[in-house]
Nucleic acid binder design. Structure first.
Lengths: 252, 252
DNA sequence: ACGCATTTGTTCGTATGTATT
DNA sequence: TAATACATACGAACAAATGCG
């Protein structure tokens, strides 16, 4: 019997109390993820156990998980279970990087760390990251290279409080995607991002770096990454050299 | 009772015979869409009627429609029915155009048609559109302007046979998105597209058009649009002036 | 190698809620 | 108000993949 007028679970704070049961279940699961109740790459309880725990049918839990899987928060694996999504999945090295070599195949990129320093967030950075004026931030600069030639120059800004302990050494020692480091060591999971893309002229230093003439066209990719609850936690400004690579996008 | 070993419907040609029932239903519905059985903007039969017609439960039809709605092939409206997606939806003027003004709000763009001619497809165009060498193609060139200033220069290529009767006059007379014209008058529905984005230097004529210096950076957006069955039906090369606008993208 | 238990995936059926006309 | 259509929720059964003993 559908008892939608007397929900079997306490509603999450953000959802209206008349929201469907499966949405309430979803809120509870998201809250659990946010609280670190289940770690990235680890399985959450089975559908039947969650159904028993929340006092709803398995189908209702299923629908909640379906939506979360569609949002890349969870990954379902038949016969094994449902797992918390991670940025360390084998298939896609960089889940958010859309740069692709013109001549087929996925990008094989080397990394070179340029800089990592703590400072007060510049006003523009503070505004986008929703920091108070003068709050601490971490800036990271790094290079991605294909066949030894620079292709991407990244400039990252992170909230200082959440990323206490992020140092040059820590970054140098890390093998794997940055977002994997962030979720594993700092409990900050990037789940969504917005990018603003422009064509810009290379400044002299940038031109030298990429081996192009000053004023040559480069792709500017400004990314704002969000964690649970649509809270922005990373600002990234990338310059892409799109001579032998391009930014690939799917429209649906 | 689940009778998955003896499917209640004939399988569609592309799917293996052991595919789930709802996938087979989905194939049948896609085939119907492709055949023009239901027109864009029009409702398809109700879930209960489809269930009766195909001899499956309503839940199975529902799951098929769910996937098609997720792929933007159909649009569900509670209380009204399920409708064939169209490029004339009120909310989004241009469903595939990601250009956005830097200062908030959606883009309000005027159009100016520059050219429309029929010719043999150049080899590169023919290759991408899967045309035979020397087959006919239609080329359209047009401008999008914001506040009277050019922002986008579009260069389109369409298969000549499918777009017989597409003329300058026809285009001039049309009010609304091009893709709406294509689906309404030529029965060609764009359902998906892939874009390759680069920063390029403005050629002299392009520079004059946009009012920038020759060599100034412009965004090059090469779009290949597909219809049902992943058949490419449009090649579009756009040049975007990204001084007061940007290309907006969502990463999930 | 085989079978069993676990977990997600598919399918059916039924009842009720909510939005639209 | 009534009829229609999609949306939510429950329960039950079997299929398919996985891992373990």
């Amino acid at each position: 019997m559908a008892e939608t007028t007397s929900p079997a679970v306490e509603r999450a704070e953000s959802a209206p109390s008349f929201s469907p049961l499966y949405q309430q279940i979803k809120s509870l699961l998201v809250t659990g993820l946010e609280a670190g109740q289940w770690q990235p790459g680890q399985p959450i309880p089975s559908e039947t156990e969650l159904a028993a725990r929340f006092g709803v049918s398995q189908g209702t839990v299923r629908k909640a998980i379906d939506e979360m899987a569609a949002e890349n928060l969870l990954v379902r694996r038949q016969g094994k279970g449902t797992f918390v999504a991670t940025h360390a999945e084998a298939q896609t090295q960089y889940r958010f990087l859309r740069l692709t070599p013109d001549a087929g195949g996925p990008a094989a990129l080397q990394r070179r760390l340029l800089d990592c320093r703590r400072m007060r967030a510049p006003v523009e950075v503070a505004r986008l990251l929703a920091l108070k004026a003068g709050e601490a931030a971490v800036q990271v600069r790094r290079l991605l290279l294909a066949d030894g030639k620079p292709v991407v120059l990244d400039d990252l800004w992170l909230p200082g409080t959440a990323f206490k302990g992020l140092t040059m050494e820590r970054l140098e020692a890390w093998r794997g995607p940055l977002y994997r480091l962030f979720e594993a060591e700092f409990s900050v999971r990037m789940i969504r991002a917005e990018e603003k893309i422009r064509a810009v002229a290379a400044a002299p230093e940038e031109a030298a770096l990429f081996g192009v003439a000053p004023g040559a066209p480069l792709l500017s990719v400004e990314r704002l990454s969000y964690t649970y609850g649509d809270r922005p936690v990373e600002l990234r400004r990338g310059l892409y050299h799109t001579a032998a690579h391009h930014y690939r996008n799917e429209l649906g």
